[in-house]
Design a binder for these strands. Structure first.
Lengths: 354, 354
DNA sequence: ATGAAAGCGCTAACAT
DNA sequence: ATGTTAGCGCTTTCAT
């Protein structure tokens, strides 16, 4: 029998939670609740956790807990249970609205299920991502939603410990984890076709890094349509790889403008690069009629109708929500091979993205 | 003497970290490191924490720790120390780039000092904010950076436990906490003056909710300049209160357009409402020459030079960084009355905001 | 159904 | 300088 801080025997009458006591600010523990209710700490624990306890006891414990303003200490709980009610979400950058939307989707689902969410910004860097995965491991997080910064994230230790991981937006080579993806090829195809339908004659493409899956797939979609329209032209002449950032889009557009027989429209495969591309067009005073533009993904803080930019919204929020649901299923013990969900793009998500 | 999992007496020869053992995925503990190094757990703890240990021992412990891939369990540590290396940042919405920029500022400083950051989205709601504050308390966070959703956040319990709190961007009525603010009045004044300088004759204003401090201060700045130009006009006729969101800006601009002797320019006091205002102008086909616009804060995903919008950047990132520094000072034990830092707006922050 | 007690992994007296 | 040990607050056998 140990004498924990604040423990009171049944004889002790002074039961008030002396608010200005020597340990002002200390949270009450189950021991204090137990002695106030006249039961054992174990019984308090059972009540908190919804295990079978006789009605009378349960009531007394609840009353005591309320009176003392008791909240179970999550740290102690986590140490003992070796698990927590916390999910990690690792995104490549918090400053791209696509990922903040995705985060909202994850958060909606997580919160609805009683989990809290820790948001981590990997800054598109393998080392930071790795660090956060270690944190998730060390902190005994219940699961991880990951937008991988590379296609070989260090998941080994996490998976060894059977912590569920779901990858979103980008897939992971080799490792068997659930993933929620977009039909990138289809969305790029559709964007390209719209520009041709609007009457443009030669549609170029600005996509992301060569080694990035989404960048490749989107380029593939564009290439397919382009080659149909220009069977004799090498599509690579009209394709630029940038880095998915504003500056990259700016430079890539500048480069396309100097191409011999330059394109009269461009598909830009993400929101940030579109902003850059527009900046270049503006600087060169090239009107929307001279150079058409399609953007994959929303530009939430832009007002672009006037500029005639063809925007193809991507269901970022749904992506996050679907990933979170998949993760919660696994946490709940769902077995079976890794799932691979591809979200429809045109179909309109149940949860609107803005 | 207890026999912890994985504990090995000095006699035990089998010292390899059997990777596929019965507890696959279990993290090594200081006990395992201790026995591998042939020292006591306390010594391991001392080495980890940089307390004085003889060179030879320290070396052996480090070798053992490396070999076992040991990481101290943060949960156990937190339980024991009653404190953690984690900061909370509570923002009203992750979907406004102003706050994500601010978050980057906090993160930069936090990470530099070895703290991790938990980002929470209060959704501008008092109840969610309150919940996150409770989480911060229960999780023994080292400190909280708060963009208050209301001017009376529930800080009592946190402060009772002497957890440092810094408010950013908005101040807190009554409570004595450090705060980092902008000179909202000045920035609004400056925006208004620019529009008059550009030749507009009657500059209206769209600001945030009546009860919000920043909304009031910005409106005050506008009112001051407006009244100087129109001493006989009631400024309230040219002021609209909205909710700092896109839809609010849209409606407020629509309302201003129907005003008798309507304004020929408008100061909009945040980025989101500016987007809404622009949408209305576009729909009504009102050109930038007919209706001037100034926006308080960056519009990172917009390309607005063409639209002639006067953008006044706000040092969001610096705001976050300054708040984090203040917080770390307090965590480090800095005493003294609550500080109130007002960041210069025009002066150009040391850390650029994009 | 309830209680006693061990122990999650670590740190901090205290003893040596 | 190093080791022993109690205990942070909780959950969970194991008895009763």
């Amino acid at each position: 029998m140990r004498p924990p801080r604040g423990y009171r025997s049944e004889i002790d009458i002074k039961l008030s939670p002396d608010p200005a006591g020597p340990y002002a600010g200390a949270m009450p523990t189950i021991y204090e609740v137990a002695s106030l209710a006249g039961v054992s700490p174990a019984t308090v624990s059972r009540v908190i956790n919804g295990l079978p306890v006789s009605g009378a006891y349960a009531e007394r414990v609840r009353a005591a807990a309320t009176k003392l303003n008791f909240t179970p200490n999550p740290t102690a709980r986590r140490l003992r249970r070796r698990s927590s009610q916390v999910l990690a979400l690792i995104i490549p950058t918090i400053e791209n609205p696509f990922f903040t939307s995705l985060a909202r989707g994850v958060e909606d689902v997580a919160q609805g299920a009683g989990y809290s969410l820790v948001l981590c910004d990997s800054d598109e860097r393998h080392d930071k991502e790795s660090t956060y995965l270690d944190v998730a491991l060390a902190e005994h997080m219940a699961g991880v939603v990951l937008v991988p910064a590379t296609n070989h994230p260090r998941l080994a230790r996490l998976l060894e410990r059977r912590t569920p991981v779901v990858s979103v937006d980008r897939s992971i080579r080799g490792t068997e984890v659930d993933s929620v993806l977009l039909d990138n090829r289809e969305v790029a195809r559709s964007a390209t076709e719209r520009l041709y339908a609007r009457g443009f004659r030669r549609v170029g493409c600005i996509t992301g890094p060569r080694e990035t899956e989404t960048a490749q797939q989107r380029a593939d979609g564009w290439r397919e349509v382009f080659s149909r329209h220009h069977p004799r032209t090498d599509p690579e002449r009209y394709l630029r790889h940038a880095d998915f950032r504003v500056a990259g889009g700016r430079d890539a557009m500048a480069s396309l403008l100097t191409t011999r027989r330059r394109p009269d429209a461009v598909v830009v495969t993400n929101n940030s690069m579109t902003v850059g591309a527009l900046e270049t067009l503006q600087r060169e005073r090239i009107s929307p009629a001279e150079m058409g533009l399609a953007c994959l993904g929303d530009l939430p803080y832009s007002v672009l109708q006037r500029a005639g930019v063809e925007v193809l919204p991507l269901p970022a929020r749904s992506l996050g929500a679907a990933a979170a649901r998949l993760l919660l299923d696994r946490i709940g013990g769902a077995e079976g091979p890794a799932q691979r969900i591809v979200l429809p793009i045109g179909g309109g998500p149940a949860i609107p993205d803005r």
